[in-house]
């Protein structure tokens, strides 16, 4: 009995970040990297994975140190922990692929100031056990990567007619240059947000109708 409830809670911790409280589409946090490096799906995926890695490592460490860090200096300590892992990530990416490192540029270092990571450390990891903090971070990281991929895929398909560098739309397709430009990032994200808003509105109307129908009976 107790076993199944903990299992359910763990799944909840994970799914919440991926869908219900998706950091990009619902909370609208960590916008800078989302817009800046989502011009191709490959960059978006790499950035998402790097952020997820930093998020998981720092959440785990913050959670395990939560009884040692005094309340007054907690933000500074969190930032230091995050900055350490970001430096590690930067060197790892440089070791794996110089090209990728060049494409992402300063935005790898800028993971430090991604509000999602600090937000999760402050709101969740500093108050919960290591296991839960890790799952929560994994969920948020997955949600962040998912959102980045959504944007990156749309922008790459429309902007250069390919996906992960593989042409998908054929040679007759005239690429929409605007999608690769900065303004394309704003428009694509706005489009996704519109889509989610539209779904929410539709659901609300349906619920209202169901209620009205119930009242009539």
């Amino acid at each position: 009995m107790a076993n199944s409830s903990t299992e359910k809670q763990s799944t909840n911790d994970f799914i919440r970040g991926l869908w219900e409280e998706n950091p990009v589409f619902v909370q609208v946090l960590g916008m800078c990297p989302v817009l800046a490096v989502s011009n191709t799906a490959t960059n978006a995926l790499a950035m998402g994975l790097a952020t997820a890695f930093v998020l998981m490592m720092s959440s785990t460490l913050v959670s395990s140190l939560r009884s040692f860090i005094p309340k007054q200096v907690r933000i500074a300590s969190f930032i230091l922990i995050i900055a350490t892992f970001v430096t590690v990530t930067e060197y790892i990416i440089q070791a794996i692929s110089i090209e990728l490192h060049k494409a992402l540029g300063a935005f790898i270092s800028l993971i430090v100031v991604n509000c999602v990571i600090l937000g999760r450390s402050e709101a969740f990891a500093s108050k919960n056990t290591i296991g839960r903090a890790f799952l929560d971070a994994a969920g948020m990281g997955a949600g962040f990567t998912f959102a980045l991929l959504c944007l990156g895929a749309v922008r790459e398909i429309l902007g250069s007619g390919s996906l992960f560098g593989v042409p998908v739309l054929g040679t007759h397709f005239e690429p929409w240059v605007v999608m690769i430009l900065p303004s394309g990032g704003f428009f694509t994200l706005a489009g996704w947000l519109l889509f989610f808003n539209w779904r929410k509105e539709k659901k609300k109307i349906q619920e209202k109708r169901a209620k009205a129908a119930l009242a009539e009976v």
């Binding site: 609208v28 605007v178 430009l181 900065p182 303004s183 394309g184 990032g185 704003f186 428009f187 994200l189 706005a190 947000l193 519109l194 808003n197 539209w198 509105e201």
Partner: peptide, 22 residues
């Protein structure tokens, strides 16, 4: 319209501003 209200609208404005700055 309700659907556009909030962040989506702000982002679209930002996109247009960004185009202008091009």
């Amino acid at each position: 319209p309700n659907v556009v209200k909030g962040t989506a609208l702000t982002l679209m404005l930002a996109g247009i501003l960004s185009l202008a700055f091009m």
